[in-house]
Structures are given as C-alpha cells and as structure tokens.
C-alpha cells in the first residue's frame, strides 16, 4: 500500500511538472529541436532543472543504501553500450521530432486535452508491444 501511494504522489508531481514546464506543448518541443529555424530554448530549462535536482537528490538517496519501502534500488543492470541502445534512441528521436510527443507528456495530456495525445499514446503502446514481439522472435 505504501508503494502504491508513493507512486501515485510521484506521478501527480510529475504530471504537474510536465504541464507547467510546457513539455505537453508539441510546438514547444519541435521549437526546441528546430535549431535551424525559430529555435526556442525553453526545454533546455526543463531538462536542466530536472537533471540538477535529481543529481543532487540521488547522491543523498543512494548514500542511504536502500529505499524507504523496499530492500533495493532497482537500477538498470546493463552497462554495455550496444547497437540496440543507439538504434532504439535514434528511432525514438525520429518519432519525437515528427510529432513533438515523448511518452510522459503524451500520457500527462490525456486528462485535459486527449484528442491528439490519445492517438499518440495508443500508438506508443502498439510500438512498445511490437518491439517485444520482434525481440522475442529474434
């Protein structure tokens, strides 16, 4: 139950952050990626604010040795940089640049502005599952 409530609380804060930051506006996302056009740096401040905050907090959190509710930190165990990582990131970037939505903002938009984001979220889910099928069969 604790884990459920803490995840709900973290999700709420994340959702507010995404809307406040402007990440839910695909015009802003594309504006940030449009370095040769009408470039808008706002998203650099989002990433900057998030990374600086998390970097500082993580130092203290990891120093504790374990999370409040649970025995271990669940961190990715793969450390090798492989083709899958880079090709996957490149494919994600193409989709991101095309529509201006990454997964978080698309989901966070569902409650107040669902028209475009709903199509995007369903397609993201389809893409996710498609990869799982491809991965299993290879």
């Amino acid at each position: 139950m604790n884990k459920f409530i803490s995840a709900l609380a973290a999700g709420l804060i994340f959702g507010v952050g995404l809307v406040l930051s402007g990440m839910v506006d695909p015009n802003k996302v594309v504006g940030f990626l449009d370095v040769a056009g009408n470039w808008g740096p706002s998203l650099m401040f989002v990433l900057g604010g998030a990374v600086v905050t998390t970097t500082i907090a993580y130092r203290f959190i990891f120093a504790k040795g374990k999370p409040m509710f649970g025995s271990d930190f669940h961190l990715p165990t793969i450390i090798k940089v492989d083709q899958k990582l880079l090709f996957g990131a490149a494919i994600f970037g193409i989709g991101w640049g095309l529509i201006g939505y990454c997964p978080g903002p698309a989901v966070a938009s569902l409650g107040f502005r669902p028209e475009g984001p709903l199509i995007v979220v369903v397609s993201i889910l389809a893409g996710l599952l498609l990869y799982k099928v491809v991965e299993r069969s290879s």
Binding site: K84, G88, A89, A106, I119, I124, Y131
Partner: peptide, 16 residues
Amino acid sequence: LIVGGLLVGFGTAMGG
C-alpha cells in the same frame, strides 16, 4: 501521429 507514436514506442522499448 500514429507513425510517430509507433516510432516512439518501438524506439524507447528497443533503447530501454
């Protein structure tokens, strides 16, 4: 939107 969403889903799953 569908093509973009598919690429985002596939790419993030592949790139972890």
